[in-house]
Simulated scan of single mutants.
Amino acid sequence: MRITQSMMSRNFMTGLYDITGKMDKTQYQLSTGRQYQLPEDAPMENVQIMTHRSTLVQVNKYMKNTGEIQVWLENSDSALSEVNNVLQRVRELVLQANNSTATTDSKQAIAHEIGELNDHLKNVSNTTIAGRYIFAGTNTDKPPCTKDSNGNWVWQGNNGDINVEIDANATVPMNSKGFDIFVRNDFNWNDLTTPTTPAPEKNLFNMLDALTKELKDPNSTKSLDKFLDVTDQFLDGVNDERSSIGARANRIDFTKSRLEEFHLNITDALSGKEDADMAQVYTNMSMQQNVFRAALSAGSRIIQPSLVDFLR
């Protein structure tokens, strides 16, 4: 077969294109640290890489959700701890006022302190996180504890759960339903004080207002035992909810720990499939540069000078 100048030129250019293509791939690996530039470089491996990436997106979402739940649970527990302390103080004050040795002046002072504590409880019940009321059920955009047109306190929150996904097909309510904490229907206003029309909602704030009113009335001879009983009922509700928060918090801790370990394992698996061996990449680049220079040097000898070269 007769070897012509054009054949040598074509073979030279083919080889040059091949080595520059390899250098382009190696340069990509150097700049990104990844093995594959295009899906067709390794179809099966790229399918696994995309699967791992999709899994990491889901795991990151679950980890973000567990973090948000922890913030809500911690703030809810802190607020309910404050409610518990206030109710314990109210109980102590009621015991003092219920003593036969209590004077009118001392009852007035106790009534004033209970009124201040009640105001504090209203603020606690309207606790917010990022502008969302944590005890309002799903009505997080409105303060749950407000006054009606009759001057009584009403609870506008509902019993809805704010369920957050922490794993595939697994959700956890991150909120505490204030209706179950601050509202009770198992006591009778007639047992506590003279009923009014219309009857106020049976919530903690109206109960404390009624207690304050009884203490301020110098003519009242009613025993405060029923107020103690109702206070204990509210305390039981607070403690029950704090137990629920503790159980959910433990579950979230275990789930978050498992997600972090799973995230690490998937990241390692993704790295094994996707990351380039940088030592090998540097070696390949050095070899390819040498080949490229040798090809150019050989090409300068193979390709004959043209008329333009003589005219320079």
Rank of each mutant, 00 (worst) to 15 (best):
S220I: 13
I245R: 03
I181H: 05
A210P: 04
R184L: 14
V71P: 03
T4A: 09
D217K: 00
D41W: 08
M7H: 06
T138L: 04
W155K: 05
S271A: 01
P39A: 10
M1K: 09
N84E: 09
K273Y: 07
I49G: 01
S300C: 13
N123S: 11
K22H: 08
L270F: 00
T32N: 08
A269N: 01
D167F: 12
D161S: 14
T101H: 02
I114T: 05
V291Q: 14
M63P: 10
D18C: 00
Y133G: 02
S271N: 03
N150S: 13
D105G: 11
W155I: 04
T171E: 14
P143S: 01
Y282A: 07
T267I: 04
S223G: 07
E92P: 01
D24R: 08
I49K: 02
S106L: 14
K22F: 09
M8N: 07
N265A: 00
I19T: 15
N152E: 05
T255V: 15
V230C: 07
L80I: 01
D41L: 03
D229F: 06
K64T: 14
N150F: 15
T196P: 05
N75F: 02
V238E: 00
P305A: 03
R248L: 12
I114C: 08
S125H: 04
N46E: 13
M50V: 13
V164L: 11
K226N: 11
R258F: 14
Q156G: 15
F205A: 11
G178V: 05
P218K: 10
G21C: 11
G115H: 07
P195G: 01
I166Q: 10
Q96G: 02
H112T: 13
